[in-house]
Amino acid sequence: MFEASLAQSAILKKVLDAIKDLLNEANFECTDDGIKVQAMDNSHVSLVSLELRSDGFEKYRCDRNLSMGVNLASMAKIMRCSSNSDKVTIKAQDDNPDKVSFIFESSNQERISDYEMKLMDIDADQLGIPDTEYSCVVKMPSAEFARICKDLNQFGESLVISCSKEGIKFSTSGDLGSANVKLAQTTDADKDDAVTIEMRSPVTLTFACRYLNHFTKATPLSSQVQLSMSDEIPLLVEYRIGDMGCIKYYLAPKIDD
């Protein structure tokens, strides 16, 4: 038996919006600790790692570890049938379920709807991600990061990110011309609009802009985003999901041949 309830479906909708364009399908691994998803996009260039801890749910019960293979477009269709303020319960009866139910309850309890979704067998590679001490860790407003990725995507396919003590610079160029956005570190680190940089050594890396734009679909989840970078290893882009977990995106860099 698996059952997990959230007071408001809005969080789950935002989580799904943050991954459904990058991934077609994914295994939801459910344990007593919570729900985890790790999946690569089709081209194996980026990876999504999602964690929702059990203590962040209003109610959570997982008698035995189970893996639910989910078609994310199907789940997104079902989630769109809920109102943001609905309570949502995810329920699977068996230890090895072939279907999962979503129950939406309106705040006044006057409307209850349930949707059953077929699960699928997904045979996917799992990657071991080593703990890394990154050369630069930048925290910045998530809306600013989204704006930069969107604006610069018009100029070129590749985005160069350079980070130093002075700040972080995003650059691109293409047929139209070139573009640079520099952000300086702010003095007040506690505010939502703060830009903070922890640096061991300066870093310059090149990434496909298209994937960064996909990652910014997580912007509604968190006012801040954290970028962790070291030379010649994948970028880590991390959004917190309130106090209940986080969504991490890894993106392999482009490297000179």
Binding site: V45, L47, L127, Y250, K254, I255, D256
Partner: peptide, 13 residues
Amino acid sequence: MSQKKLSSFFKTI
């Protein structure tokens, strides 16, 4: 420049 795959950095488990 060439786009690397994640398997160049993270090992399959």
